Amino acid sequence: MRGMLLGLCIAAIAAPALADKVGITKDMMSVTVTTPGGAVEIKRNQDPDARLGEPWTKTSRPCPNFCIQPMTPAPGVTTIGELEVLEFLKSGEALLVDGRVRPQYEQGTIPGAMSVPYTEAADRLEEFGCEVDFDGWICEGEVPSVVLFCNGPWCGQSPTAARRMIEAGFPAEKIYYYRGGMQSWNMLGLTVVPGGS
């Protein structure tokens, strides 16, 4: 009888915990962003038993090419985390740029991200407010901030994009690097959408 009573007490205590939603922060359950395909609500997976799927569970990729990236890919670039990415998405004060190759973007990306593969970043600066010049690019005045990301701390695609953009004339202080990328985004159970949706 005591065992049954103890079990009921434990169940009664645990029930409210199971009813709690998985929030982004204690005060933020979700963020709704406008994308070309319409509004998308970004929230964490509500299943407390959820696990990462492939390829995000893989921890050891051969270096090179998959070497751990520095915290800051170039002088002047600011490294940020998920909450800052969400704040940029809410405010619309920056362009979110998926620097991965197009097939990776199409498989799944952060809602609101545009695809600019790292191999094209320095050639597409007009999309970031720069003007073509005979000697390259003029990136003066009100160029927007750009948040670059790729697959995670072992992925060199967005750090390469940042360095190439700076070499082409884009101001480093307008570049933000989400180092955690898709691996951290997926690890936290945040919303992922097919690229271009």
Results as ranks from 00 to 15, higher is better:
L6D: 04
P194T: 08
G108F: 08
A162I: 04
I68E: 14
L6F: 12
F66I: 00
A14I: 15
R100C: 13
K21H: 11
K174Y: 00
P103R: 04
A113D: 06
D123R: 14
C150K: 02
R61A: 07
C139Q: 05
G108C: 08
K58E: 14
R2D: 12
V116M: 15
D98L: 10
L188N: 15
E140I: 10
M4N: 09
S197P: 06
L148I: 12
R2Y: 10
E142G: 01
A162K: 01
G7M: 09
E142L: 07
M187R: 13
S197Q: 12
P153L: 03
P171V: 09
E54Q: 12
A17T: 06
R124Q: 14
R51V: 14
W56S: 04
M187A: 15
S184K: 11
V31D: 03
P36I: 06
G38K: 11
M165E: 00
Y178E: 02
Y176I: 01
T78V: 10
L148Y: 02
V132S: 13
W137F: 15
T25W: 06
G81V: 05
I24G: 04
L5E: 12
A94N: 01
S158F: 04
K90D: 03
E87S: 12
A168C: 10
A39G: 02
C67Q: 04
C139I: 11
V77N: 01
G38C: 08
V101K: 13
W137N: 06
S115H: 09
P48R: 15
N65V: 12
T119K: 14
E84I: 01
V22F: 06
G3S: 11
V143M: 06
A122P: 09
T119G: 09
P171K: 05
N186Y: 01
E131K: 15
T32E: 14
A14T: 14
